[in-house]
Every structure is written in structure tokens, then in C-alpha cells.
Design a protein around this nucleic acid. Sequence first.
DNA 1: TTGACATATTCCCATATAGGCATATTATGA
DNA 2: TCATAATATGCCTATATGGGAATATGTCAA
Lengths: 113, 113
Amino acid sequence: MMARSATTSDAFNAVAERRRREIIDMLSRSGEVPVNGMVEALGLAQPLVSKHLRVLREVGLVSVRGSGRRRLYRLNGENLKPIHDWTKRFERFWDDQLARIKEQAESSGRKKA
Amino acid sequence: MMARSATTSDAFNAVAERRRREIIDMLSRSGEVPVNGMVEALGLAQPLVSKHLRVLREVGLVSVRGSGRRRLYRLNGENLKPIHDWTKRFERFWDDQLARIKEQAESSGRKKA
DNA sequence: TTGACATATTCCCATATAGGCATATTATGA
DNA sequence: TCATAATATGCCTATATGGGAATATGTCAA
């Protein structure tokens, strides 16, 4: 009855798509970029790029600004923070050094509490 | 002609689903957990939990181990690192302090190069 | 005003689910 | 051995896409 959640429901879903991550990477590097700039750089069909941009806009990951006939897109990177924060919880799984430090901090915290 | 990429294609897609993130969070807190443990804790139907676990297994995010009639699942958190690494690139968007430090480091790096 | 460039939409199709339900599998423990 | 607990699968339906193609919109520049 229910299908997969919409790509426009949140950043996690929007970012699950590889193309959209590429668009985000590009905006991160280049600042403001017009649709055609992405079309050329990514080698995708223009309508497809516009559609992905729409999804990104709907979750607030990008903003647009008109400039002549063109539309300049900009990354709102701060909206990727929820994802970063979530994955940060698992740092101990790959960063043993950090794990040791944290465990020590936690254990001393427990002693005080 | 082509639909959304499979949830089993990579961690990004697997993690796009809220329930699966909840399962991951639970495993992160509790270590090894049997299916029923998650069923009760998350209030989901057992078949649904098994299906989500299968997706997580296919992308390597969890491992299983038999124990009597039960199957104990464990988190392979290190496979969340790609997501963490990707989002890390955008830290400057929310961490201005860090941004300044990095920019300074990069500019001095450029001078040397 | 008008033609051309730059984007956004609309339609259509095949694919990929989440979930709900029923049932098949397994591994026990008495 | 065997009923049973604990999981995994199979089936079916409503949704939600990515893409492709064609077309609608918008904005300028001459």
C-alpha cells in the first residue's frame, strides 16, 4: 500500500541519488552555476537536471536566483548537517583512535556522575 | 525506463529509509540484537523488520550470527563511513569556525605548492 | 514585436519498493 | 521425534520515481 518515501521528504532521500550528489558536489566547488553549466559538466539531459534540481530545491538543499535568461543555482550545504550528524555517531566504527579517546572521556564522565 | 536505484545498491540508498536508520541506531546502542528484539522495540511487523534487515545485509551494513533459534544482528558501522566522508566535505557550511581554520590551512598549503 | 536561447513541465514507461498477509524454513528444546 | 518458537519468503497493491521525448514558459536582444 505504501511505497518508498518520496525523494522530496528529506535530505536523506534526496541525497540517495548519485546524480543529485554530483550536482551538490559541483555546486560546492563552483558556487553559483546555471542549469546548462551542470548539463555540460555532468553530461545529462537538460530536463533531467532540472528535475533533480527541483527535488533538491524541495528539500532546501539548493536555492535559485534569476540572472537574465539563466537561473543560477547555489548550494545550501547547511541542510546536509542532519546527515553528517547522524553518521557522526558511528565514527567509533572506523576511527579506533577516536574511539579510545571517547571511551576514556565517557568513563571519566561516569565516574563523576 | 529506469526507476529509482535499488536500496541495495549502496549505503546511501539503504539509509534513505527511516526505519532502517532506526534499526541501525538500535544496533549501535545495543550491540547484538535478535529480530524479535527489534520488532518489539520498534513496533514493526516481524516480516517488515526481516526485509529491512535483508537490505541492510545486502549493502554490508549489518552481519548476522545464529544463536539457538535466534539470529543475532550486529552493526557494521564502518560501512557508513562513505556517507560520513561525503557529508564532511560540506562542514564549512555550518561550521564557520572550522571554515576559517581550513581556509587558512589551504591557503598556506597553496603557498608551499 | 519576434526569433532564439535557457529552463521547467508534462506524458509515458519500466522498475523498485514498503507494507500487509499468509506461508515456508529452521533450529530447537522437551 | 515433534510441536513450537523465531525468522525469512512469497505474493499482491499502491506509490514514487529516473529517464526520454516533446512541449510549454520565460527572458532577452535586435
